[in-house]
Design a protein around this nucleic acid. Structure first.
Length: 1119
RNA sequence: GCCUUGGUGGCGGAAUUGGUAGACGCGCUGGAUUCAAAAUCCAGUGAUUGCAAAAUCGUGUGGGUUCGAUUCCCACCCAAGGUACCA
């Protein structure tokens, strides 16, 4: 009987599966314990060695807890919607469902082969309709809810409607859009259904909003941030533009404070909590409004070139009603002459008769209010029309206009008009500051260069400089602008703001250290209190008033909050805290500001323009989104012919022919039935990757429930996750969004707890070796040889990329590839990752690389190898040994499919067995630390397994006997029990493996083959190496699985020592050791040490100044 | 820039509340076994000097606290991950 791991592992894996050993029960007298892994995305590359790292750790924990008497829930599933499957579908035309199914099969085989104790009866797949039915259901719940700030929780939108019916919205305190308008109950009840829906959307927890996306016209898709490198698409290098798109958003901002507060009660790693805290970005301060001085520019704002161009187009593109009306109005001459699309101020009017001061406008413009006040302030009479009435009775409309011209309505008195005028003419700058107490120290303001006001306030003489600066800024990334604190740059706009308290003129600058995306994109600069403002002021010679008492600011700003405020009118002499309160009070009194808590967190975009994701349960009636009744869920993903966006840029679902909602039959019907009455278009976006993963941990509790996302009884029993293991890269994605959803579900009383994971551990990632090859950035028709090749040139039919062996680059390319090709200049080449599997013995296997599915675009490329080159996949020149060699650069980085550097665990299982793989991955180092993958040490772990086996089975015979264990044997055992208990509690699995090795080494040396020792040892090791443990347990004579056998109990009595080997140090340096009884007291120890000959030898006649004796620890002789 | 984590032999990594630095494993060297190899077993293995006994140096760098520092404090350097704050 040899240690045949393949046989043993297969045997026990089958046993576990046949006997459902790890099935968790929703009813049990045992205490519950829920161990969860972040479920994997089933990519085509299969499981890599980085995945199991966390899974092995959690599996050890789960198995350990079973031994400790817990009812353990340890499930697994697949986050199976995602981009790679879709990308593959685009490339190969295969349905993502099909490839996903295949990939899952591979994953399952690989997971099974490592021997995880998952309860597979609870498997979930986010892409299965039975699962996403409930994702859609939760989405509907979010749509039907709003966040009430008074109750501090989400409640049903129907409550809100009731309030509107009774009181309008004046008393509503809810998380909502910024641009809310007040309305009365009367007004509410007079609104059309559409208007009501528009207002409610501003409150709902999920809503449609215009959001900017990265649009790549050439690829015809929206790109994720990490698909963009240096402003162009990673694939293909095409330009990317910012484009506005209507998308679903989640009002996560409503939960900002609770997400922050919740962090205090969960045991998650501090760095992870920090990044969530920073992501939410709470800062307390005040909003202050500064008025811009309007001493110049009485003239109306000029339109930019772009706007004029747009105007020309507008004039050509009249609506039917407009065209009809223009036909009537343009014939009027003289004082009654009308112009159309004429600009007044910053507004474009529909029609205007300047001499008679009449404006004719179609209703329904977004900025209608501002238009009215401006037009009226300018003394115009405005006639409002709607399209329908023009189309219906043109003549009546013309009569109406003529009447107005004859009997002009008296417009508001001059005085009010003037007031309004100043209001319109003067711009305002809102700033958020955490130090409103320093407001008297403001000596300039800085706007972000992209701030919308910049173009409006800049003076003519500064315009050119400002424009140049804006252009230069646009090229810099936000990261770059933030990180670079050394370069101080900015431009004065020529405009001034007015200090709200002392009326001083404050110059307005723009500077790229201010980001448009943060706060209001404007800063009130206080150079004496902020180092960056200080540096800016110094650099440009701006005044630096000192508002701190007895503080020298000649060298640097004072950012100390304890400084007392001075030279600040009514707050002089106050400490910061008091001054802040007073200023906020004054700001509120004057109506120019208020105390505010600002969050950096923004509402989360919840749409993707992709195929392979959850469809929304939404159809559009007259352009307004409608939820499909929950009883008709799931709304299944439709079939499409192509997974690319449609020609007119709609998401891939736009290709579906059966994708309309019939409200009569409540079913999905063919698009040709669309009738704008009973059949309406369905939503074309799909949900993002984080939708399905935001609640899956609840589904596992009751995975097969068809009546609810999970039954109440199951939810109440399992409550929450006791241990969650996963990577820290999900800190601000999955881990924040899922907390948000959980809190929402909690508010709706759908789950019993508002934090779903008590404890979380981040496993460190496994690093892999990536291989980079050099490629020209452009395709050329000519192939040029480097000097060691022939001199001839070849002309290609089609232009192709050129790849260069690293050695060629090293030899010739130090000053750029120019020396190699004589045409490809420096900077015109780039690095491309290639899969590690084509990197053999330090060389790239070009022949097979170009056949790879991901490299099809390089099929016809030219590869400059060390001794020749490949053209069109054929080897052209050179026939020596070197000629096929293609070298590349290696780099250690995160192991990931997208980096093509994954290593598959299958080979290791095959060669050494799953138990060895499990132990080895743990033995690599601390769980939480990142470490490079290297199989060098695996033989050591494998030989440990063999040694363990040999303790029980010698010469193929089971040799365990019932003799009494010796003191030493018991000591080894209990030492190990203690260590393993402690290590598991600390998640220090690597040291456990070491202590197993030590134990086995010691027991081997003692020739121990006693049941009293070897039985507990098998249990001890079973969480780590379950297959061998089961087999040994079976050999020991048990027919039941070892999985729930009680864990050995540590007994300290076996570790009691009578002597201690004392290290004897001289001036802190250990010189020799002495065995002494632990019964000795300080004096006795000192005496024994001092009389020892080695001590005398060390002292060489000197008398020690001091002797430090710590009984049981150390002796140190000083002198 | 800032935040987080980390920096210990040739390599992965150990080291209780400050108390014998380098456990355990790999690799390497030598030996046993073998016709030979694999496998297995035994011994050695931080560096320098030395026949040895032993000595000196050594946990990223420089300081400090202490009888004693990988561990605590200060300053700095490097690497990886993240990128929000300072408005």
């Amino acid at each position: 009987m040899k240690y045949n791991f393949n046989e043993i592992e297969a045997k026990w894996q089958k046993y576990w599966s046949d006997n459902q050993t790890f099935k968790a029960h929703n009813k049990s007298h045992k205490p519950k314990f829920y161990v969860l892994d972040m479920f994997p995305y089933p990519s085509g590359a299969g499981l890599h060695v980085g995945h199991p790292l966390g899974y092995i750790a959690s599996d050890i924990y789960a198995r350990y807890k079973r031994h400790k008497g817990f009812n353990v829930l340890h499930p697994q599933g697949y986050d199976s919607f995602g981009l790679p499957a879709e990308q593959y579908a685009i490339q190969t035309g295969q349905h993502p469902a099909k490839t996903t199914e295949e990939n899952i099969k591979t994953y399952r085989r690989q997971l099974d082969q490592i021997g995880f104790s998952f309860d597979w009866s609870r498997e979930v797949r986010t892409s299965s309709p039975e699962y996403y039915k409930w994702t859609q259901w939760i989405f509907i719940q979010l749509f039907e809810s709003y966040y009430c700030n008074d109750e501090d929780k989400a409640i049903s939108i129907s409550n809100l409607i009731e309030t509107f019916n009774k009181d309008g919205n004046k008393n509503v305190n809810a998380a909502a859009d910024e641009n809310l308008e007040l309305f009365t109950a009367k007004a509410w009840n007079s609104y059309s259904d559409k208007q009501k829906q528009e207002i409610l959307a501003k409150y709902r927890l999920t809503f449609l909003s215009e959001t900017e996306v990265n649009w790549c016209p050439q690829l015809g898709t929206v790109l994720a941030n990490d698909e963009i490198v240096n402003g162009v698409s990673e694939r293909g290098g095409f330009p990317v533009v910012r484009k506005k798109m209507k998308q679903w958003s989640m009002r996560i901002t409503a939960y900002a404070q609770r997400l922050l507060d919740g962090l205090e009660k969960i045991d998650w790693p501090q760095p992870l909590k920090d990044s969530q805290t920073n992501w939410i970005g709470r800062s307390q301060g005040a909003m202050v409004t500064f008025e811009v001085m309007s001493t110049f520019k009485k003239e109306v704002v000029k339109l930019s070139y772009k706007e004029i161009e747009a105007l020309k187009k507008l004039r050509l593109n009249l609506s039917k009603a407009e065209a009809l009306l223009w036909g009537k109005l343009k014939i009027k001459k003289g004082a009654s002459k009308f112009r159309h699309k004429y600009t007044l101020g910053a507004f474009i009017t529909d029609f205007v008769c300047v001499s008679k001061k009449i404006i004719i406008e179609f209703t329904g413009k977004v900025d209608e209010k501002e238009r009215i006040s401006f037009f009226e302030a300018e003394g115009f009479n405005v006639v409002y029309l709607n399209e329908k009435e023009v189309l219906k009775n043109l003549d009546a409309v013309v009569v109406k206009i003529e009447n107005t011209m004859q009997f002009p309505k008296k417009i508001a008195s001059n005085k009010i008009s003037k007031d309004k005028k100043t209001k319109i003419d003067s711009y305002k700058i809102d700033v958020f500051t955490t130090r409103p107490d320093t407001i008297f120290g403001v000596s300039f303001m800085t706007l972000a260069p992209e701030h919308e006001l910049v173009a409006k306030i800049v003076t003519d003489d500064r315009k050119k400089e400002v424009d140049n600066y804006i252009e230069a800024t646009a090229k810099r990334s936000e990261r770059d602008r933030m990180a670079d604190v050394k370069t101080i740059s900015g431009v004065f706009t020529g405009a001034y703001a007015i200090h709200p308290f002392n009326g001083k003129k404050i110059p307005i600058w723009i500077g790229d250290y201010v980001l448009a995306s943060y706060g209001t994109g404007a800063v009130m600069a206080v150079p004496c209190g902020d180092q960056r403002d200080y540096d800016f002021a110094k650099h440009f010679g701006i005044e630096i008033p000192n508002i701190f008492q007895d503080i020298d600011i000649s060298e640097q700003a004072c950012e100390d909050k304890t400084a007392v405020i001075a030279n600040s009118d009514f707050i002089s002499g106050m400490p910061a805290k008091k001054a802040i309160k007073r200023i906020i009070f004054e700001l509120e009194e004057k109506g120019i500001g208020k105390g505010k808590i600002n969050y950096r967190l923004r509402d989360a975009v919840f749409s993707r323009q992709r195929y392979w994701g959850e469809p929304f349960p939404v159809y559009y009636k007259d352009g307004m989104p409608q939820m499909i009744d929950a009883k008709f869920l799931p709304i299944r993903l439709p079939e499409v012919e192509k997974y690319l966006p449609t020609k007119d840029g709609k998401p891939p679902l736009g290709n579906a022919t059966t994708w309309a909602w019939c409200t009569k039959t409540n079913s999905i019907v063919n698009n040709n039935k669309l009738n704008n009455a009973t059949v309406w278009p369905l939503e074309l976006n799909t949900m993002p990757g984080w939708a399905g993963s935001s609640w899956y941990f609840n589904r596992y509790m009751d995975a097969n429930n068809t009546e609810a996302f999970a039954g109440k009884e199951a939810l109440d029993y399992w409550q929450d996750v006791d241990l969650y293991i996963g990577g820290s890269e999900h800190a601000t994605g999955h881990l924040l969004y899922s907390r948000f959803w959980q809190k929402f579900l909690f508010d709706k009383s759908l789950v019993p707890v508002d934090e779903y994971a008590k404890k979380l551990i981040n496993q460190g990632m496994i690093l892999g070796t990536s291989v980079f090859v050099l490629r020209s950035t452009i395709k050329t028709n000519q192939i040029f040889y480097s000097e060691n090749h022939s001199e001839e040139n070849l002309a290609l039919k089609d232009p192709a990329y050129q790849f260069y062996s690293r050695d060629i680059y090293e030899k010739f390319g130090k000053e750029g590839i120019i020396d190699v090709s004589k045409k490809i200049k420096e900077g015109e080449y780039t690095e491309v990752r290639v899969p590690i599997k084509y990197f053999i013995n330090g060389k790239v296997d070009v022949k097979n690389l170009i056949k790879d599915i991901n490299f099809l675009e390089y099929k016809n490329s030219i590869f400059h190898t060390d001794g020749g080159l490949w053209v069109n996949g054929v080897y052209k020149i050179g026939n020596n040994e070197l000629s096929h060699d293609f070298t590349a650069r290696e780099e250690v980085e995160k192991m990931s499919k997208s980096k093509y550097n994954v290593v598959n665990p299958d080979d290791i299982c095959e060669q050494y067995g799953a138990d060895t793989l499990r132990l080895y991955e743990m033995f690599l180092g601390p769980l939480v630390q990142a470490k490079p993958w290297n199989t060098a040490g695996i033989t050591g772990v494998n030989s440990f397994m063999k040694k363990l086996w040999k303790l029980y089975i010698v010469n193929d015979k089971f040799t365990v006997n019932d003799d009494k264990a010796t003191k030493e044997e018991l000591k080894t055992l209990h030492k190990t029990i203690k260590k393993v208990d402690e290590d598991i509690a600390d998640f220090s699995f690597n040291t456990s493996v070491s202590s197993f090795m030590i134990a086995v080494n010691e027991l081997t040396a003692l020739k121990c083959n006693k049941r009293e020792i070897l039985e507990p040892l098998a249990v001890l090791i079973s969480p780590y190496a379950p297959h061998i443990a089961e087999e040994l347990w079976n050999q020991l004579g048990y027919n039941e699985s070892i999985a729930t056998v009680d864990f050995p109990i540590f007994d300290a009595k076996y570790l009691i020592e009578s002597t201690k080997t004392y290290p004897i140090s001289f001036n802190g340096k250990m010189r020799f050791t002495m065995d002494l009884s632990l019964d000795l007291n300080k004096e006795e120890i000192e005496k024994a040490v001092m009389t020892h000959e080695k001590t005398q030898q060390q002292l060489a006649g000197r008398t020690p100044k001091k002797v430090i004796v710590i009984p049981g620890k150390i002796v140190n002789i000083v002198g």
